[in-house]
């Protein structure tokens, strides 16, 4: 493999090959936990940690793992990472753990993580694997927080409510009441709201893509070429 283009790893992870917005993976936890932006942030951080660490270990062991047994081995690696996160959250962020509940163990079955391990980390050296984990995890975190914020602002009129449970009391400033005395729109907090919010985010992403495509600038073709090289 030629020299890795770290910049394209990040553009892929955050935008052009985003886990949730382009690969359409990991939608189950995305729809289930994003009733508030804080939940999204917590889930995103947990997923990102699992992604980075399992990418790292897989990349280290990639010469030993034979293709025949790779899927069970990947799953065991991911499951160990998830168990660590699960126990850590239960011990140190118990309130958040109660909210995220079942969805933390379910990170094991998160196809986005297995997808990155299989498609990237098992073929690449350690450093690019870590960077890819960070980029993809950040991209997923971004979507989780955006969808969570959209649902939370419209659904209950707050933003990052209970953020201090997740990040410690010094982050109390993040808890914003956007609309005071708001009776709330329950629909957005319930599962249908998750589907609707995700739909709007996807639409927005495609609108921005289309706008960027049609913008007549000189850099755009060069940039596109780089991206497609990175993806290939």
């Amino acid at each position: 493999m030629s020299e890795t283009n770290y910049k394209s790893l990040f553009t892929n992870g955050l935008w052009s090959n985003n886990v949730a917005m382009c690969q359409m993976l990991a939608l189950c936890p995305l729809l289930a936990v994003t009733s508030t932006a804080t939940n999204g942030l917590g889930m995103g951080l947990a997923t990102m940690f699992v992604m980075v660490s399992s990418n790292l270990i897989t990349s280290v062991l990639r010469m030993i793992i034979t293709p025949q047994v790779r899927i069970p081995v990947f799953i065991v690696l991911i499951a160990s990472m998830v168990t660590m996160v699960d126990l850590f959250l239960n011990a140190f962020m118990h309130e958040l753990y109660k909210v995220l509940g079942l969805f933390i163990p379910l990170i094991v079955t998160n196809c986005a993580i297995l997808g990155r391990v299989e498609a990237f980390a098992s073929k690449e050296p350690v450093l690019p694997a870590i960077v890819d984990g960070i980029a993809m995890g950040l991209g997923f975190l971004l979507v989780l927080v955006i969808v969570g914020a959209f649902r939370e602002v419209i659904g209950s009129g707050t933003l990052f409510a209970h953020a201090s449970l997740l990040l410690g009391p010094s982050f109390g400033w993040m808890e914003i009441t956007v609309i005071p005395n708001y009776s709330g729109v329950l629909l957005l907090i319930l599962p249908p709201g998750g589907f609707m919010a995700l739909g709007f985010v996807l639409t927005l992403k495609r609108l921005i893509d289309r706008w960027a495509e049609n913008r007549p600038t000189k850099e755009t073709p060069v940039e596109d070429q780089k991206l497609s090289e990175g993806a290939a």
Binding site: S183, V185, L186, L187, L190, P192
Partner: peptide, 9 residues
Amino acid sequence: VALLISFPL
């Protein structure tokens, strides 16, 4: 139905 679920009162 959306209204009924969102604004029961």
